[in-house]
Amino acid sequence: MKQLIFTVGWLEFTRTKTRNWLLLLLILGSAFLLLSYGDSVAGFQKHHQDDRSDFELISPERLADKRGISNEFVNLASIPTAAVTAAVGFFGFIVLLTIPFRSRQEWEDGQFQMISMGRFNFYQVESARFLSYLSLAVLYYFALLGTSSLYAWLSGVSSMQGIKTMNLLISYFFLALVPLMLSFGIFVSAINTAYYRDGGGKLLTLVKYVSCFCFFVLVLKVFRGVVDRETILFPTLDLHIEIENFFEHTARLNFEFLLISLSSAAALLFWSARIMEEVED
């Protein structure tokens, strides 16, 4: 299985080369944007104008005291850090969504069919595909969170609690949405493969892609429905998010939605493997 994961990972990495470069550019771009936020981002400050010595690392607590940032509540005081992180997170999510889709040419190249002719079945191949996409997504979001947390910490514009809140919130949405969307991509890709071989009309293609969009809307509706429910099975985690004079919201992290989302992801993955088995056998 380890051999299969590495093989599929390498094949997928070469197939999605352009999108990997795009993700790398997004990370580098966000790092550049956060850096160019000016002197407030740089945690390294000189003692005074005439000082020719090296830069001094100012502790976040000192900077926070200097700028009068309250540590009493969970705080996301840095608008640029939060905005850049949210924007890059969203664009990365869109790029990651497109990664599982394979074109007709890529299907005809038959990378996965060749693997399946060996000792591996399609359940293993589809799981390996999922793991390779998930590892790419984890790498991307880990780099994004690392970069934004580092600059938020160095700048001192956001308290340590605020940074933890941002990390918790993004990690929750990552776990709740990314595995589901990757599985959904693999599922649509498997359906496409079935219709590549036997043919499908233009109307079907149109309705299929409209339905993909409708699926995302329905997921958001389910999320809202689950979060707004009065009776809950698991305890929720309330996070207070505040960007001074701009935005204030208490996010309720619901573990029921997480459970539904991860179970649906597993079911879609199983279903796509079954489709591939029926199509290729």
């Binding site: 599922f187 649509v188 219709y195 409708c214 699926f215 329905l218 029926e278």
Partner: peptide, 21 residues
């Protein structure tokens, strides 16, 4: 469009998202 029953069912479920919405 296809001979695979699971793909047919999958496509119908996908289309049902549009119908529900």
């Amino acid at each position: 469009g296809t001979g695979s029953p699971s793909a047919k069912l999958g496509m119908c479920c996908l289309i049902s998202c549009t119908v529900i919405l």
